[in-house]
Design a binder for these strands. Structure first.
Length: 493
DNA sequence: AACGGTCAGCAAGTTCTGAT
DNA sequence: ATCAGAACTTGCTGACCGTT
């Protein structure tokens, strides 16, 4: 028999094989290539939830669950009403820690806090496990609530976070669902009692969470698996059923769309394709040309008045300006003061971009951010709209006219750039290497806990990263126009 | 997590084709 | 002229993609 945390029981509900691997083969996790989001908002959100219970007591966790269990019992032995954070219980060899547990008279009230913005179906199981353990430990629950972030909340400032949470009363449903928890726990124990369960790869491997063992249960069995076909999930499934593993073995007539055919052809020949259409489209663009990139930050708990949870707030832009002689000039903006950067971001951008000349970007992300700035600053509406009309997106151009076998069915900048400008890799960059890293760096820079030396290093890294990103756009555009050649990669027509 | 987009796959509607 | 069935449009939806 095993002691199981709530998260282990949740794993077992998703897939017995996953649970077995987590318990019996720790350290075997083969994290999937498609990187999981690194944002960790639970901490911020939990801290604010606790602020709403000024009398609450936090049960510490110093690596020893037994001490958390003991402290919980100790506090509950006291008389009177109380609120506990991270109260810890076990029952039936299942162990849980409750976000917020209050005693009012004889009854207990449970609150589970989530950083997401909606009530998700699997939360019901999560809360049911907690409720079952807590009631099993002898605490009758009067109400069971789930709180999640309300992304319509506008922060008024001054630390006033009333209204950050949307609250759902789940008492009835959870008390009903609770009856199934013993069966879930028994299922987990059974899965762990034998050898590795033989579970086929399926929908449960991605839903509701990516399984960390996906690469183990479904090893890559081909150099160019059929799954690289873009938007081809269903087709890839059918092809695999018929025994096709590698895209190069699939007969041509099984592929319908132009894009699939190009991926198939390029992969089989091992040679990149670049259609003349790319150069033709770019030839219509006048000078000066602006190559532009934004960095933004999101907070689950808003820190600047007038902002909402998870809004994408721009703090940095980079722009390479190219004149008709091919000369490049770099302009940039980076706010590191810690106050809301959006207004100065918009003003400096408007100033730098002038009033004519195409603005080249990769993806429609910059358009989205500019549209949000329009709403925030109506007085800049006209200037921002003027910028939006000048945007030229290289991403659809790449999708229509370019493919290289190393891209593996993806036209993201990360996958395209190494096939065109391999010299623009991570060397020369500090610890900021992608948008997520830029966000982490910015959070550290504005944090009062970061010392000055590290701040300066992070600022330099952010500048280097954003500079490189717009330079990458220049190189890609030049390659599409036939103005640059590539060494080391097989390219052809 | 949010946003803004594309695309495959399906269903229903419409036009075309060829036999009677 | 009529009609069945093929072939083509149109519209919708949910999965997928890419950015921070």
């Amino acid at each position: 028999m095993y002691f199981l945390s709530k998260s282990k029981v949740m794993s077992g509900l998703q897939c017995p094989r996953r649970l077995w691997l987590e318990v019996k083969r720790p350290g075997w996790m083969h994290f999937s290539d498609r990187a999981e989001q690194s944002f960790e908002f639970g901490h911020e959100v939990g801290a604010v939830a606790r602020q709403l219970f000024p009398e609450g007591v936090l049960i510490g966790f110093e690596g020893e669950l037994s001490s958390a269990l003991a402290e919980t019992g100790h506090l509950l032995n006291r008389a009177g009403d109380m609120t506990l954070f991270e109260a810890t219980f076990q029952h039936g060899r299942v162990l849980v820690r409750a976000d917020v547990l209050s005693r009012r008279g004889e009854g207990f009230h449970l609150v589970e806090v989530k950083a997401s913005t909606s009530l998700k179906p699997h939360y019901m199981n999560d809360v049911a496990i907690q409720a079952w353990v807590i009631e099993g430990a002898g605490l009758p629950l009067k109400t069971i609530q789930l709180w999640h972030v309300d992304n319509a909340f506008v922060y008024p400032g001054g630390g006033d976070y009333r209204g950050l949470f949307a609250r759902h009363d789940l008492t009835e449903e959870v008390l009903e669902l609770m009856k199934q928890v013993p069966a879930w726990a028994a299922g987990c124990q059974k899965a762990l009692s034998g050898g590795e369960p033989a579970i086929e790869v399926g929908k449960q491997c991605r839903d509701p969470h990516d399984c960390p063992f996906l690469d183990y249960c479904e090893p890559v069995e081909a150099e160019y698996p059929v799954s690289i076909l873009p938007h081809g999930g269903a087709l890839a499934g059918r092809l695999r059923m018929e025994g096709y593993k590698d895209l190069r073995d699939v007969p041509q007539d099984r592929l319908g769309t132009e894009r699939h055919l190009r991926v198939w052809r390029v992969t089989r020949r091992g040679l990149a394709e670049l259609d003349e259409g790319a150069a033709k489209d770019l030839a219509t663009l006048a000078y000066p040309r602006y190559y532009m990139d934004f960095e933004t930050v999101q907070f689950a708990v808003p820190v600047w008045p007038g902002t909402r949870p998870y809004e994408q707030l721009p703090f940095q832009w980079s722009c390479h300006i190219e004149d008709q002689n091919g000369r490049l000039e770099h302009r940039e903006f980076l706010d590191t003061e810690g106050q809301a950067p959006m207004r100065r971001f918009a003003e400096t951008l408007i100033e730098a971009l002038g009033d004519k000349g195409p603005i080249l970007v990769y993806s429609n992300y910059e358009r989205t951010v500019l549209n949000q700035l329009r709403k925030r600053f109506p007085d800049l509406e006209d200037r921002l709209v003027a910028i939006i009309t000048r945007l030229f997106d290289l991403h659809p151009l790449a999708k229509d006219y370019y493919y290289h076998p190393a891209m593996m069915g993806s036209w993201s900048l990360k996958d395209v750039l190494p096939t065109i400008a391999p010299e623009l890799d991570y060397t020369g960059l500090g610890e900021v290497r992608d948008g997520g890293g830029a966000q982490d760096a910015y959070r550290d820079i504005i944090s009062p806990r970061t010392d000055e030396l590290r701040r300066l290093a992070l600022i330099a890294d952010l500048r280097a990263y954003c500079y490189r990103d717009t330079l990458a756009l220049v190189e890609i555009a030049h390659y599409f126009e036939g103005r640059r050649h590539i060494g080391g990669y097989p390219h052809g027509r």
